[in-house]
Protein backbone atom coordinates (compact mmCIF):
# COMPACT_ATOMS: atom_id res chain seq x y z
CA UNK A 1 0.00 0.00 0.00
CA UNK A 2 2.81 2.41 1.00
CA UNK A 3 4.52 1.67 -2.29
CA UNK A 4 1.31 2.31 -4.16
CA UNK A 5 0.82 5.63 -2.40
CA UNK A 6 4.40 6.62 -3.13
CA UNK A 7 3.91 5.82 -6.80
CA UNK A 8 0.74 7.90 -6.82
CA UNK A 9 2.44 10.93 -5.29
CA UNK A 10 1.90 14.00 -7.36
CA UNK A 11 4.23 16.32 -5.44
CA UNK A 12 7.64 15.76 -3.90
CA UNK A 13 8.66 16.72 -0.38
CA UNK A 14 9.18 20.34 -1.42
CA UNK A 15 5.69 20.50 -2.84
CA UNK A 16 7.05 20.44 -6.41
CA UNK A 17 5.01 18.66 -9.05
CA UNK A 18 6.84 15.47 -10.01
CA UNK A 19 7.41 15.52 -13.77
CA UNK A 20 7.64 11.70 -13.98
CA UNK A 21 9.83 11.93 -17.06
CA UNK A 22 6.86 13.11 -19.10
CA UNK A 23 6.90 16.87 -18.86
CA UNK A 24 9.44 19.35 -20.13
CA UNK A 25 11.29 20.86 -17.20
CA UNK A 26 14.56 22.77 -16.94
CA UNK A 27 16.07 20.08 -14.71
CA UNK A 28 15.01 16.83 -13.02
CA UNK A 29 15.02 18.50 -9.63
CA UNK A 30 15.10 22.27 -8.97
CA UNK A 31 18.08 23.70 -7.11
CA UNK A 32 15.78 26.49 -5.79
CA UNK A 33 18.17 29.29 -6.68
CA UNK A 34 15.00 31.29 -7.32
CA UNK A 35 13.16 31.45 -4.03
CA UNK A 36 10.12 32.92 -2.33
CA UNK A 37 9.04 33.05 1.24
CA UNK A 38 10.89 35.79 3.10
CA UNK A 39 8.77 37.41 5.83
CA UNK A 40 5.44 36.37 4.38
CA UNK A 41 2.44 37.55 6.43
CA UNK A 42 0.10 35.18 8.23
CA UNK A 43 -3.20 34.39 6.53
CA UNK A 44 -5.18 36.84 8.64
CA UNK A 45 -2.94 39.79 7.78
CA UNK A 46 -3.01 38.91 4.10
CA UNK A 47 -6.81 38.63 4.13
CA UNK A 48 -7.12 41.97 5.93
CA UNK A 49 -5.02 43.55 3.23
CA UNK A 50 -7.11 42.00 0.45
CA UNK A 51 -10.18 43.36 2.22
CA UNK A 52 -8.59 46.83 2.33
CA UNK A 53 -8.11 46.91 -1.45
CA UNK A 54 -10.88 44.60 -2.69
CA UNK A 55 -13.56 44.75 -0.04
CA UNK A 56 -14.43 41.09 0.58
CA UNK A 57 -17.49 39.56 2.28
CA UNK A 58 -17.53 37.77 5.62
CA UNK A 59 -13.83 37.87 6.44
CA UNK A 60 -14.08 35.43 9.35
CA UNK A 61 -15.94 32.90 7.22
CA UNK A 62 -13.15 33.19 4.67
CA UNK A 63 -10.51 32.49 7.30
CA UNK A 64 -12.46 29.48 8.54
CA UNK A 65 -12.81 28.32 4.94
CA UNK A 66 -9.05 28.53 4.52
CA UNK A 67 -8.50 26.54 7.68
CA UNK A 68 -10.90 23.82 6.51
CA UNK A 69 -9.21 23.78 3.12
CA UNK A 70 -5.81 23.39 4.73
CA UNK A 71 -7.03 20.36 6.70
CA UNK A 72 -8.59 18.89 3.61
CA UNK A 73 -5.29 19.11 1.75
CA UNK A 74 -3.40 17.56 4.66
CA UNK A 75 -5.83 14.67 4.76
CA UNK A 76 -5.51 13.86 1.09
CA UNK A 77 -2.53 11.50 0.77
CA UNK A 78 -2.16 12.20 -2.92
CA UNK A 79 -1.87 15.95 -2.75
CA UNK A 80 -0.89 16.69 0.84
CA UNK A 81 2.77 17.32 -0.08
CA UNK A 82 1.72 20.44 -1.96
CA UNK A 83 1.44 21.99 1.50
CA UNK A 84 5.22 21.62 1.93
CA UNK A 85 5.77 24.42 -0.55
CA UNK A 86 5.14 28.14 -0.24
CA UNK A 87 1.44 29.04 -0.31
CA UNK A 88 -0.33 32.37 -0.36
CA UNK A 89 -3.99 32.88 0.62
CA UNK A 90 -6.57 34.64 -1.51
CA UNK A 91 -10.22 35.57 -1.12
CA UNK A 92 -12.36 36.75 -4.02
CA UNK A 93 -15.86 38.09 -3.88
CA UNK A 94 -18.45 36.46 -6.18
CA UNK A 95 -18.13 37.93 -9.63
CA UNK A 96 -18.99 37.01 -13.19
CA UNK A 97 -15.95 37.69 -15.33
CA UNK A 98 -16.62 37.36 -19.02
CA UNK A 99 -13.46 39.06 -20.28
CA UNK A 100 -10.43 38.04 -18.20
CA UNK A 101 -8.04 40.38 -20.04
CA UNK A 102 -10.26 43.40 -19.54
CA UNK A 103 -10.80 42.58 -15.87
CA UNK A 104 -7.06 42.15 -15.33
CA UNK A 105 -6.15 45.31 -17.20
CA UNK A 106 -8.89 47.60 -15.93
CA UNK A 107 -9.46 46.39 -12.39
CA UNK A 108 -6.85 44.02 -10.98
CA UNK A 109 -3.57 45.63 -12.00
CA UNK A 110 -4.60 48.92 -10.44
CA UNK A 111 -5.25 47.20 -7.12
CA UNK A 112 -1.99 45.22 -7.30
CA UNK A 113 -0.15 48.44 -8.05
CA UNK A 114 -1.81 50.33 -5.22
CA UNK A 115 -1.22 47.62 -2.63
CA UNK A 116 2.40 47.19 -3.71
CA UNK A 117 3.37 50.85 -3.86
CA UNK A 118 1.61 51.55 -0.54
CA UNK A 119 3.70 48.73 0.98
CA UNK A 120 6.93 49.79 -0.77
CA UNK A 121 6.55 53.57 -1.32
CA UNK A 122 9.98 53.93 -2.95
CA UNK A 123 9.45 51.12 -5.44
CA UNK A 124 7.56 51.11 -8.70
CA UNK A 125 4.92 48.92 -10.26
CA UNK A 126 5.04 48.69 -14.03
CA UNK A 127 3.02 46.83 -16.66
CA UNK A 128 4.33 46.18 -20.17
CA UNK A 129 3.00 44.17 -23.07
CA UNK A 130 5.28 43.03 -25.90
CA UNK A 131 2.54 43.74 -28.34
CA UNK A 132 1.00 46.76 -29.97
CA UNK A 133 -2.36 46.62 -28.24
CA UNK A 134 -4.02 45.73 -24.94
CA UNK A 135 -5.37 42.59 -23.22
CA UNK A 136 -9.05 43.15 -23.93
CA UNK A 137 -10.60 40.01 -25.41
CA UNK A 138 -7.17 38.41 -25.55
CA UNK A 139 -7.16 35.95 -22.62
CA UNK A 140 -9.19 32.76 -22.18
CA UNK A 141 -8.94 29.77 -19.82
CA UNK A 142 -6.23 27.31 -20.90
CA UNK A 143 -7.43 23.89 -22.09
CA UNK A 144 -7.88 21.38 -19.22
CA UNK A 145 -6.50 23.93 -16.75
CA UNK A 146 -9.55 23.92 -14.51
CA UNK A 147 -9.66 27.71 -14.84
CA UNK A 148 -13.00 27.69 -16.57
CA UNK A 149 -14.47 25.73 -13.64
CA UNK A 150 -12.81 28.15 -11.23
CA UNK A 151 -14.47 31.09 -12.97
CA UNK A 152 -17.81 29.24 -13.03
CA UNK A 153 -17.68 28.69 -9.28
CA UNK A 154 -16.65 32.30 -8.73
CA UNK A 155 -19.67 33.47 -10.70
CA UNK A 156 -21.89 31.67 -8.18
CA UNK A 157 -20.12 32.12 -4.87
CA UNK A 158 -17.42 33.89 -2.88
CA UNK A 159 -14.22 31.87 -3.04
CA UNK A 160 -11.19 31.51 -0.82
CA UNK A 161 -8.10 29.42 -1.42
CA UNK A 162 -4.37 29.07 -1.60
CA UNK A 163 -2.07 29.87 -4.46
CA UNK A 164 1.01 27.59 -4.59
CA UNK A 165 3.40 29.65 -6.72
CA UNK A 166 6.37 27.28 -7.01
CA UNK A 167 4.62 23.97 -7.68
CA UNK A 168 5.50 24.11 -11.36
CA UNK A 169 8.80 25.96 -11.16
CA UNK A 170 11.08 25.10 -14.10
CA UNK A 171 8.16 23.71 -16.17
CA UNK A 172 7.71 25.06 -19.68
CA UNK A 173 4.35 26.84 -19.99
CA UNK A 174 3.09 24.10 -22.34
CA UNK A 175 3.99 21.46 -19.76
CA UNK A 176 2.36 23.47 -16.98
CA UNK A 177 -0.84 23.21 -18.99
CA UNK A 178 -0.30 19.63 -20.15
CA UNK A 179 0.25 18.22 -16.66
CA UNK A 180 -3.24 19.38 -15.70
CA UNK A 181 -4.65 16.54 -17.80
CA UNK A 182 -3.44 14.14 -15.10
CA UNK A 183 -4.86 16.06 -12.17
CA UNK A 184 -7.85 17.98 -13.45
CA UNK A 185 -10.14 15.44 -11.85
CA UNK A 186 -9.05 16.67 -8.43
CA UNK A 187 -11.97 18.92 -7.46
CA UNK A 188 -11.41 22.61 -6.76
CA UNK A 189 -7.89 22.68 -8.12
CA UNK A 190 -6.75 24.69 -11.12
CA UNK A 191 -3.69 25.99 -12.87
CA UNK A 192 -3.15 29.47 -11.45
CA UNK A 193 -4.28 32.47 -13.45
CA UNK A 194 -4.68 36.24 -13.20
CA UNK A 195 -7.56 36.55 -10.73
CA UNK A 196 -6.19 34.66 -7.76
CA UNK A 197 -2.49 35.41 -8.42
CA UNK A 198 -3.21 39.14 -8.55
CA UNK A 199 -5.38 38.83 -5.43
CA UNK A 200 -2.60 36.91 -3.66
CA UNK A 201 -0.16 39.71 -4.52
CA UNK A 202 -2.59 42.31 -3.19
CA UNK A 203 -2.66 40.44 0.13
CA UNK A 204 1.04 39.59 0.11
CA UNK A 205 2.74 42.44 -1.76
CA UNK A 206 6.23 41.36 -0.66
CA UNK A 207 5.87 37.86 -2.16
CA UNK A 208 8.46 38.51 -4.86
CA UNK A 209 10.71 40.93 -3.01
CA UNK A 210 13.83 39.74 -1.22
CA UNK A 211 17.09 41.34 -0.17
CA UNK A 212 19.05 38.18 -0.70
CA UNK A 213 17.37 36.01 -3.29
CA UNK A 214 16.09 36.29 -6.81
CA UNK A 215 12.47 35.22 -7.08
CA UNK A 216 10.80 33.12 -9.76
CA UNK A 217 8.77 34.64 -12.59
CA UNK A 218 5.12 33.85 -11.81
CA UNK A 219 3.42 32.73 -15.01
CA UNK A 220 -0.35 33.04 -15.20
CA UNK A 221 -0.74 29.88 -17.25
CA UNK A 222 -4.34 29.25 -16.25
CA UNK A 223 -5.08 31.57 -19.13
CA UNK A 224 -3.83 31.51 -22.71
CA UNK A 225 -3.28 34.61 -24.84
CA UNK A 226 -4.94 34.72 -28.25
CA UNK A 227 -1.37 34.92 -29.62
CA UNK A 228 0.10 31.78 -28.11
CA UNK A 229 3.61 33.16 -28.30
CA UNK A 230 2.71 35.51 -25.45
CA UNK A 231 2.28 34.67 -21.77
CA UNK A 232 1.32 36.84 -18.81
CA UNK A 233 3.43 36.95 -15.67
CA UNK A 234 4.37 38.91 -12.57
CA UNK A 235 8.03 39.36 -11.77
CA UNK A 236 10.23 41.42 -9.56
CA UNK A 237 12.92 43.75 -10.83
CA UNK A 238 15.11 44.50 -7.84
CA UNK A 239 12.75 46.06 -5.31
CA UNK A 240 10.13 46.74 -7.98
CA UNK A 241 7.16 44.68 -9.13
CA UNK A 242 6.27 44.27 -12.79
CA UNK A 243 3.55 42.70 -14.86
CA UNK A 244 4.59 41.54 -18.31
CA UNK A 245 2.76 40.10 -21.24
CA UNK A 246 5.90 38.55 -22.61
CA UNK A 247 7.04 36.37 -25.48
CA UNK A 248 7.69 32.80 -24.38
CA UNK A 249 9.67 32.05 -27.54
CA UNK A 250 13.31 31.17 -27.01
CA UNK A 251 13.67 31.14 -30.78
CA UNK A 252 11.27 30.93 -33.70
CA UNK A 253 10.62 27.22 -33.19
CA UNK A 254 11.43 26.66 -29.56
CA UNK A 255 9.61 27.80 -26.45
CA UNK A 256 11.25 28.91 -23.24
CA UNK A 257 12.04 26.36 -20.55
CA UNK A 258 13.65 28.33 -17.78
CA UNK A 259 14.97 27.69 -14.30
CA UNK A 260 13.28 30.91 -13.20
CA UNK A 261 9.84 30.56 -14.73
CA UNK A 262 7.19 29.06 -12.53
CA UNK A 263 3.58 28.02 -12.88
CA UNK A 264 1.32 27.74 -9.85
CA UNK A 265 -1.63 25.68 -8.75
CA UNK A 266 -4.59 27.12 -6.89
CA UNK A 267 -6.71 25.10 -4.48
CA UNK A 268 -9.98 26.76 -3.53
CA UNK A 269 -13.34 26.40 -1.90
CA UNK A 270 -16.63 28.27 -1.78
CA UNK A 271 -17.39 29.83 1.57
Amino acid sequence: MDNLVEKSQIFDNNGWRLPNGIYETFSDQPKWFFKLGEDLPEDKLAIDRIDKYKNINRKNDALEGLSRLNNKINNNIFIKNINNGIKVPFVIKKIDVDDIGKFLEEILLEKVSKSFTDFFPESHFKAVIQDKTDLINKLSPSVNSGYKEFLNKLSKSDICGYYFPQVLQEYSVDSQILQMKEINKVPNLCLSGPLEVATSLIGTPNLLISKTHYSPVLCLSGVTHIDERLICCFKSYGRHLEFWCLSQMLSKNKKQVSEQWSGGLSVFTEY
Binding site: E105, L109, E110, V112, S113, K114, T117, H124, F125, K126, A127, V128, I129, Q130, D131, K132, T133, D134, L135, F243, C245
Partner: peptide, 17 residues
Amino acid sequence: KVLSKEDSHKILSKDAS
Protein backbone atom coordinates in the same frame (compact mmCIF):
# COMPACT_ATOMS: atom_id res chain seq x y z
CA LYS B 1 10.29 54.36 -18.27
CA VAL B 2 8.00 54.37 -15.27
CA LEU B 3 4.62 56.05 -15.13
CA SER B 4 3.45 58.10 -12.15
CA LYS B 5 2.12 56.15 -9.18
CA GLU B 6 -1.48 56.95 -10.15
CA ASP B 7 -0.98 55.64 -13.68
CA SER B 8 1.49 52.87 -12.93
CA HIS B 9 -1.06 50.08 -13.50
CA LYS B 10 -1.69 51.19 -17.08
CA ILE B 11 -0.22 48.72 -19.52
CA LEU B 12 2.49 50.12 -21.77
CA SER B 13 2.48 48.66 -25.23
CA LYS B 14 5.82 47.76 -26.81
CA ASP B 15 6.16 51.16 -28.50
CA ALA B 16 4.91 53.14 -25.52
CA SER B 17 7.43 51.43 -23.24
